[in-house]
Structures are given as C-alpha cells and as structure tokens.
Amino acid sequence: MLNLNPETVCFLISRTRVFHSKEAVALPDEPDSPTDDWALQVLADHSGDSVFQEFKATVDDLEPDQQQALVALMWLGRNDFSADEWVAALQEARQNWDENTAEYLIAHPLLADYLLEGLHLLGYSCDE
C-alpha cells in the first residue's frame, strides 16, 4: 500500500519536529500569496538551517513516486482524503508533483502530526 519505508517517514517526522520547534522558524497558517511558490518564499530565510538541510536532502533523495506518497500521506493525515481514498490521494500528488516537495512539506506547521496520522490511518506507526 505505502511504497515508502515507514522508517523514513518517522525520521522525517523527527526532523520536522526539531525544525518547527526552533524559535526562529515562523511559518504562516495560510500563505500570504496565492502563488504556488509560497513555500519557497517562506523558507528562503531557513536555507542555511542544518535540520532543514537534512530534511530536504532526505526528501530529495527519494524517488518521485516516493515523494508523491509522502505528500499524499500528509494530505491523508490532515483529512483531505480518507484511507479509502489513498489511490486518489496518490493520483492527485502525482499530478501536482514538482521538484520542490521538501519545501512544500516543511512549510506546513503541523506536518509531523499529519504524517504521523497518515501513517496510523494506513496501519503503520513510529513505535519502536
């Protein structure tokens, strides 16, 4: 069902929690601009952050279909899709995929929670 190693998702969740817990990181709840590059604009100030770079490198190393699964997992976790609509979520992610997946994901302040919930809905967890 999930063509992505859950351990990788759990690692990304841990990096996301560290990144979003930093005081200097300020992400809007809603984008100020309707343009597609709002995530890039928001994260421009954080490009030198080592945790962000580690998160980005991990996501960038994934195959496009795995990046798409990660986005679909986030959407699943934030209730844009139900577990029964997993295939539709993957199709939507495939249609909207671009090379800025890491920036798109990390710009969501509740990303860690969304990914964890998405894993749970598909029967996975980050428990040891």
Rank of each mutant, 00 (worst) to 15 (best):
V18Q: 09
H46P: 03
R17M: 13
A39H: 04
L43I: 02
D32S: 11
K56T: 10
K56L: 10
D29L: 12
D32Y: 11
D29G: 13
A44T: 11
A39V: 02
Q41D: 15
F52D: 00
S47R: 12
L40E: 12
W38M: 05
A26Y: 04
V51L: 01
S33P: 00
E54S: 14
W38P: 11
V51Y: 00
D32C: 03
H46K: 05
H46W: 02
E54R: 06
F52S: 05
D29W: 04
A24P: 00
S33V: 08
T35S: 14
Q41A: 13
H46G: 09
E30T: 10
E23L: 12
W38Y: 09
D49H: 01
K56D: 14
D49A: 09
A44F: 00
P34L: 07
V42E: 11
V25D: 13
P28C: 14
D37W: 01
E54A: 15
D36K: 07
V51R: 03
D45K: 05
T35L: 11
L43D: 01
D32R: 10
L43S: 01
D29F: 06
D49R: 03
P28A: 15
R17F: 00
T35F: 03
G48I: 02
F19S: 15
Q53C: 04
E23Y: 04
F19L: 14
V25S: 12
V51P: 01
Q41T: 11
L43H: 05
Q53E: 05
P34C: 06
P31R: 12
A39M: 01
A26N: 13
S50N: 06
L27T: 04
L40F: 08
F55K: 02
H46S: 08
L40A: 09
K56H: 10
E23F: 09
H20W: 04
A26V: 13
V42M: 09
A39Q: 03
K22H: 11
P34D: 14
H20Q: 14
F52M: 02
P34W: 02
F52K: 04
A24C: 03
K22G: 14
A26Q: 13
Q53N: 12
D37V: 00
A24V: 10
P28F: 09
S33Q: 05
T35H: 10
Q41R: 04
S47K: 07
P31Y: 07
F52A: 12
L43M: 09
S47N: 08
P34I: 01
F55G: 07
V18E: 15
L27W: 01
P34T: 07
F52Q: 05
A26E: 13
P28D: 13
H46A: 07
K56S: 15
S21A: 15
A24M: 06
L40H: 01
V51T: 15
H20A: 12
D49W: 04
E30C: 02
D32L: 14
D45G: 11
L43N: 03
P31E: 12
S21N: 15
S47L: 03
D45I: 00
A24G: 15
D45T: 09
E54M: 02
E30F: 07
G48D: 12
K56E: 11
